[in-house]
Design a protein around this nucleic acid. Structure first.
Ligand SMILES: [Mn+2]
Ligand SMILES: [Mn+2]
Ligand SMILES: [Zn+2]
Ligand SMILES: [Zn+2]
Lengths: 144, 144
DNA sequence: ATACTGTTGATAATCGTTATCATTTGCGTA
DNA sequence: TACGCAAATGATAACGATTATCAACAGTAT
């Protein structure tokens, strides 16, 4: 059985960070949220609304620290702000609905392979890549 | 033979825009630049340095108008600012060197096809997509 | 419990970009 | 060619997201 509280503390500790109240709350939120992809502003508002005392600057700082230590991944969709999600270790790309904001994840091994081939063709050392498909989800495509 | 000056006027006119001095200069710059992908700030600086009188607000405004009328394409790489390039009608994706900023273009029909298949699988109506590979170019991969 | 050092959070600052608005200019018309 | 006016410009203020500052505070090793 898994002790989630301990697990969160461990994650923060092994990132070389002190286990503080704000850090625990932010990590808990990301782990329990029904929405996997959250902006700094969303994290801040959700915590404030659940009566947590936290500063916006801290949220930005901690999210960046978590990203740098591999706990979170940052995505820069064309929405004007970064969104964060837990880094579950498995790479994936995104479908983003431009009308309702829904984010769907997918992974296509063949696309990944073809990207590597492209990089090789250009003698390019890939560090990262981002593939996002923008459009309308099933629901928004039809009425509402 | 092609009269490029006329062609530029035509492009601006058919966008429903008046043929103004700033618009001509910006379009000429994009068409003659050795660098295909330019930011608003770069366009502004290049024009100022060639003794053109132009305001930064105008550059931003005109680039957006050109984008909306299909003359230019806007890209939001993870650089913190938009870059623009002439829309030559042919879709392509990008390789971006994170150390020297070089941008290489590529087109892979098979990747495109697979993306369509992914969208279909999720019952998603694709409007646009962006694929960018970040890494180190041939030159930067080796010494300098 | 103490001391030390990292962390917090209110707030100012920054950065890219957009909004304002008085002045200017392209361009259709006489 | 000159006129008239809507569209365009550009200096500047405003904006939204994010980062920097720094005095007060809180983990943690001892
Ligand atoms: Mn995701
Ligand atoms: Mn390009
Ligand atoms: Zn939707
Ligand atoms: Zn390079």
């Amino acid at each position: 059985m898994i002790d989630e509280t301990l697990s969160e503390k461990e994650q923060i500790r092994s990132a070389g960070l002190k286990v503080t109240h704000p850090r625990m709350r932010i990590l808990e939120l990301l782990e329990n949220s029904s929405k996997a992809h959250l902006s700094a502003e969303e994290v801040y508002r959700m915590l404030i609304e659940s009566d947590e005392e936290i500063g916006l600057a801290t949220v930005y700082r901690v999210l960046t620290q978590f990203e740098q230590s591999g706990i979170l991944q940052r995505h820069n969709f064309e929405t004007g702000h970064s969104v964060f999600e837990l880094d579950r270790g498995e790479h994936h790309d995104h479908l983003l609905c431009v009308s309702c904001g829904m984010v769907e994840e997918f992974h296509d091994e063949q696309i990944e392979k073809l990207q590597h081939e492209v990089a090789e063709r250009y003698d390019f050392k890939t560090i990262d890549h981002s593939l996002t498909i923008y459009g309308n989800c099933k629901e928004c495509k039809n009425g509402r």
